[in-house]
């Protein structure tokens, strides 16, 4: 099987991660119930005529994808694979509200057309005039991981050489407030703001100089803490990696009661530096793509921004990173990267 490498990574997030050469140098303190992404100047990437019908997720996705291709010096990918938990929720809300307020009459086409989850992948393809394999995965907190897994399989089986893959979610205006209310009913809920973002990557089966390898990944919908530990042991064993060889563990902690899963995973890696990121990116179904972006930058730059550090164990070189994410005790994922 072919190996899989990450050629480029681009993130639009609540932090200044897009229009900068720095790496989380200036941190925006995010607080409150919801936090919007730090939007780039879309006009640099999307023609005005095309952008007027695009909702936030589409604009973020198309822009991040465009820059990821640019950074990888790639004009046409062999596949476009997108993961999104909530899809174009803004237009979905608009369309459903119109149905109610207009008593099922006077429905306009734009919010309906743009409300489907695959709008982001479709708009990227339209912009590139790319007729290659195009798929969108909608699987809650495993949406991005499912897309990445598909990309990995395509490359490993030599069905493509360069794949554009990304995770994207937008806040929307209404449903998110109800979700927030549910989270805030007691202290065991999610302790970071809900947010949004788009992180896109070009993954390839051709190794470039100083390439970052996506060694392996594993997903699992439900697991007890014991089962999680078993899965983790099996994952490391399969990849012939001892726990001490993991330099950095990146955990998707969001402060809720289910962070015990991260404590459980963390206990395996006493000598590893542990990082967290959702206090910077906010929580959303595809927030783990921000985690992968951070891991890529850390391996590339050999530098860990201080705000990411949860538990510091100084390491001279960072060669191996394990990402672990879960949401509400479900949708567990491991991603193993190597320099």
């Amino acid at each position: 099987m072919k190996k899989v490498f990450i050629d480029s990574a681009v993130s639009i997030s609540a932090q200044n991660t897009f229009d900068t050469y720095g790496f989380l140098e200036e941190i925006k303190d995010i607080s409150g119930k919801t936090v919007s992404a730090n939007y780039p100047n879309y006009r640099d990437y999307i023609a005005l005529a095309a952008s007027r019908r695009m909702a936030t997720a589409v604009k973020m996705g198309v822009t991040a994808a465009s820059k990821a291709l640019e950074k990888a010096n790639l004009k046409q990918p062999d596949a476009i694979i997108t993961g999104t938990g909530m899809g174009c929720i803004e237009d979905t809300e608009k369309f459903l509200n119109n149905i109610i307020s207009n008593e099922e009459a006077f429905l306009t086409p734009t919010p309906f057309i743009q409300s489907t989850h695959n709008t982001v992948g479709a708009q990227i393809a339209l912009g590139l005039n790319c007729k290659a394999y195009n798929n969108t995965y909608v699987h809650a907190a495993l949406s991005f991981e499912s897309a990445l897994l598909d990309a990995q399989l395509l490359l490993q089986q030599d069905e493509g050489k360069h794949v554009l893959v990304g995770g994207v979610d937008e806040l929307g205006k209404e449903i998110i407030n109800y979700v927030r209310l549910m989270e805030d009913r007691d202290s065991s809920g999610i302790q970071v703001p809900f947010s949004e973002g788009a992180s896109f990557f070009v993954v390839s089966s051709e190794a470039k100089e100083a390439a970052i390898q996506l060694v392996d990944m594993e997903v699992c919908s439900t697991a007890s803490e014991e089962k999680l530990q078993e899965n983790l042991k099996g994952f490391l064993l399969r990849n012939k990696i001892e726990p001490f060889q993991i330099d950095v563990l990146i955990a998707g902690r969001n402060g809720d009661a289910f962070d015990v899963y991260y404590d459980s995973a963390s206990s395996f890696f006493e000598n590893a530096t542990e990082l967290h990121y959702k206090h910077l990116s906010g929580e959303f179904y595809t927030a783990s793509s921000f985690g992968l972006w951070a891991a890529y930058e850390i391996l590339n730059r050999q530098e860990i921004p201080k705000p990411l550090i949860y538990k510091d164990e100084s390491t001279s070189e960072i060669n191996t990173i394990l990402l672990y994410n879960q949401f509400k005790g479900r949708d567990h994922s491991f991603i193993l990267l190597k320099r």
Partner: peptide, 17 residues
């Protein structure tokens, strides 16, 4: 203004509503 066929549908709905 460079409107297109989807805009035409939007305008038809606007006229009715």
């Amino acid at each position: 203004l460079g409107l297109d066929s989807i805009d035409a549908l939007e305008l038809i709905v606007m006229l009715d509503k």
